[in-house]
Design a binder for these strands. Structure first.
Lengths: 195, 195
DNA sequence: GGACTGACAGATTGCAAATTTTGTCATCCA
DNA sequence: TGGATGACAAAATTTGCAATCTGTCAGTCC
């Protein structure tokens, strides 16, 4: 059926397509094999289980999102408070856009998050590191009050959960969420600021 | 089977018992009628539907919780920041205790919250009013920065969602949740404080 | 006459059999 | 000889029917 040898990237793309079409509940590795024109046994040569395949797809999907975020929030001579505001705001906006525009892959992400898979955990670690870096800069510049940057970043992450935690995705449909997130971010910015 | 006339309170207590024993998924109005020793038709004389019955039970359960909260957080010459800290902390502790010690009724509450029933909404309004009242006092005393008390209370409520929103109940089992909530409350207190 | 009953229709849920899917592996073949 | 295949057992899901439950109401009983 197919000429070139089967490689993991090709399988991931096919799986992404199947997940997007059928969603995490209905997608099967038989569907993936069908799209690729191979037997399902061949898929298992490259991925040890359906769960591993699903995780790899979401891993790649999140990686692309990180690049987007990094591009959107690059250092442009702004102060740490401005950068923190920008990071949080774009982080939320990107999550909301993914949930709206790519609902099935987002639902798959949500399943992994609910199962405490390592993939969403690593993604959270990345986001925490982004926040942490700005907090470090802010403390160094005197814009933020002194304290443990990791702990402060975690508190910021928890306080904004409603706007980035996939468990709250249903609430993101409300038009008020923009104003609500702005209010919480403002509250936090005043909280971290030096006095 | 029973002598005294059937009244709503008796039905509510029986329903509470049934919900506690079987949980929101398995409890039936036939079970309630069985406990009361009446036919299920009699239950429908006092409550128009199973949903109404469930809501009334949770309404009463939440009302008792409010009294507890009011008792625990009464004005004792503390400053507004101290009172806000106390309100939030005991509010979380009470939620966590309910989830732990009364899991089936808490699960029922969670179902109503997920369905956007008016009962949990009213409960949220009550909590917001409690926060709001302290914010008003804090602004008046000069402890908190000026602003719209309602909006500030809402932002505080949203920022602490992880510690009181029933959707996060699973995370309350972690022993870290105490420290995490303290960190977020500290962040918020610094956020509302006048500078 | 007002509170209660129980038969009833329609909706929902539970359950067991049938089907599909997952993951393995002996075998094939280019 | 390395990658692909498809038959297979075990696990998970779907299906379709039976049993249960919800909500109504005509009738019964103090």
């Amino acid at each position: 059926m197919r000429r070139e040898p089967l490689d993991p990237e090709t399988i991931l793309s096919a799986t992404e397509e199947v997940l997007r079409r059928h969603g995490p509940e209905k997608a099967t590795v038989l569907d993936v094999a069908r799209v690729l024109g191979v037997s399902h046994g061949s898929v298992y040569r490259h991925f040890s289980s359906k769960a591993a395949l699903r995780e790899a797809v979401i891993q790649r999907w999140l990686d692309r999102g990180r690049e987007e975020l990094a591009a959107a929030v690059q250092d442009s001579g702004l102060t740490p408070p401005e950068r923190l505001n920008g990071l949080l705001t774009t982080m939320f906006a990107m999550k909301w856009a993914k949930a709206r525009e790519d609902p099935e892959l987002f639902a798959t992400f949500r399943v992994l998050a609910a199962e405490h898979s390592a993939v969403p955990s690593a993604h959270i670690a990345f986001l925490l590191a982004q926040i942490s870096a700005i907090v470090v800069d802010g403390i160094a510049s005197g814009d933020f009050a002194a304290g443990d940057p990791e702990a402060i970043a975690l508190a910021i992450f928890h306080a904004t959960g409603r706007f980035h935690d996939p468990a709250h995705a249903a609430e993101w449909r409300s038009p008020q969420v923009v104003a609500e997130s702005a209010a919480v971010v403002a509250l936090i910015l005043d909280g971290v600021r030096a006095r």
